[in-house]
Write a protein that binds this DNA or RNA. Structure first.
Lengths: 298, 298
DNA sequence: GAGCCGATGAGCCTTCGTCAGTTCGAGTAC
DNA sequence: GTACTCGAACTGACGAAGGCTCATCGGCTC
């Protein structure tokens, strides 16, 4: 049972005779005859009724040909898709981002990618933990991963820039008066934290530890936008990447001292093709080091 | 580009490695390796990225595999359909009926066929002219044709029975008093006739000629049911097969003298399979010679 | 260095394609 | 009605191509 047999059977049905089908397919007549016979023998059914003037599909033959048509056209589509991929970029690029990193840069890069390769679809997964990210990468599901550097960063990772972290304070918080918040001044504040085992929570914990602060957990959330909103409502203070602050909350945000920043890396998978490389280049050209644009209301 | 290559590629994508795929497919590892390479060479694209632990589909590879999956499953369905047809009857049986013949018997036979072979679909074409019917038959479109015998009836036609013709009179027509209408008594009546070149019109014309009647045409219609309805409304009289009289008009119908009847034949096409034969047998077992059940209201 | 994975090359065998010739049925001329 | 011709599909033999297997090599991981 091969595609060739299907195509021959369809041609015979279309033309109504083996001879005409053979001509259409640019092969000799016995070749078509043999293929049809072989197919019928393998299936154990008569697909065509032999008349003196040619071959006519039987009842089962027509039912078979309907499905065969689907198979053949799908095969043609598959080939066309692949061949198109040789020149243009087509397909689906799967990207994973560590929650909160590159939130500002990624849309720009993806927009540019889409403009350059309209037939390239992109799916983005947002994962909180770097462990899960690594697991997906190992399984080959991901084409490109965007994450904070950690101890086990592979050697072939591409350093894109640094993500500066900022605190979000509740409305009316006394520290909003300062241009830059001294972390030690936040002693005793309750914190809006992130999911256990998430990279963001890891950053927060190490920052608190480095500044001799005791972590009082007000709540745990999984998304940075939620953390910012809750902090704005006065539930506690939180620490998020600067690029992850949603619009409308800028006035509650302050850079911290000492500065907290994390190198952001991109990992493309083994045997990366032109699509991955293109996205990587676009990400490189985004602005990563941005002068903190948060300050007290003047 | 063959189905085998598609299956191999899908297996590799599924298993994540050539070795595992080969095991799954019960072939040696180099075989799978070669097929994948051949496919990639033919398409001019890298479908899989080679990693130390196995093969992972690339961006275009995934787009290709999506279509390949469709092709392979359609091929499987095609095979399953055909194999099912070897034991059970599946598919679509195309039947053509000469307008007005077997109108009563066909539904019964088709119902029985459907009960015995639920997966066999039947399509019925109603054609007015025998020439068109023959043309369709010659082109191999039809599996079975039901028609009146004519001069050029082929030798392999199956005689099913005879279709008696009856007249339909307008309400209040004086001849309704008789059990059987003498055709000569209809001299001067306008007739509701049938489409030019239709078999029914041919029957009507030869009957009128045989009885020395002059045909006065009141109207021409293409369907027997319409002819009966128009005749019932007093537009004229008409002559239709007894089995074609729709319910509710029986009181306006009378057999004629001399008796008009046409042999009804079934023609199955060259190389008829079990489906055609089954329907033919069922048609044979329907009652064709029926004592005329039309009479004046008692 | 052991072990796993994919790639490669040689040999065997199946399968496909072609050419020749045969069979069968339909249409036609006499 | 018979014989002839033509066109259709089938059959068999042969050469070519491709698929499968075995043994082996090169790379990478642990």
């Amino acid at each position: 049972m091969s595609l060739r047999q299907f195509e021959y059977a369809l041609a015979v049905a279309e033309e109504g005779s083996v001879t005409a089908a053979a001509e259409l397919l640019h092969v000799a007549q016995p070749s078509v005859s043999q293929q049809i016979r072989g197919l019928e023998r393998e299936l154990g059914v008569e697909l065509f009724a032999r008349t003196p003037t040619g071959l006519v599909p039987t009842v089962v033959g027509r039912a078979f040909l309907r499905e065969a048509e689907v198979a053949v056209s799908a095969a043609r589509r598959a080939r066309a898709t692949a061949r198109a991929g040789a020149h243009e970029l087509v397909g689906e690029l799967v990207v994973a981002v560590q929650m909160g990193f590159g939130t500002r840069q990624l849309p720009g890069a993806l927009g540019a990618l889409r403009r350059r390769f309209p037939r390239l679809e992109v799916t983005v997964f947002e994962e909180p933990s770097s462990a899960e990210l690594e697991r997906l990468g190992r399984r080959g599901v991901l084409d490109l991963a965007l994450m904070a550097a950690c101890e086990q960063t592979p050697a072939d990772a591409h350093h894109l820039g640094d993500e500066e972290f900022v605190v979000v304070l509740g409305a009316g918080h006394p520290q909003l008066a300062a241009d830059r918040v001294e972390l030690r001044e936040l002693e005793g504040e309750p914190w809006v934290r992130f999911d256990r085992d998430s990279a963001l929570d890891g950053v927060l914990m190490s920052v608190l530890r480095d500044n001799d602060l005791t972590p009082a957990t007000a709540a745990r959330v999984s998304q940075t936008a939620t953390a910012v909103r809750w902090a704005a409502h006065g539930l506690g203070v939180t620490l998020v990447p600067a690029s992850a602050v949603p619009q409308g909350h800028e006035h509650l945000v302050r850079p911290v001292s000492p500065v907290v920043s994390q190198p952001v890396i991109a990992v493309v998978r083994h045997g990366a093709g032109p699509a991955e490389t293109a996205l990587l280049e676009l990400l490189r050209h985004e602005t990563w080091s941005e002068s903190a644009s948060f300050s007290p209301v003047s």
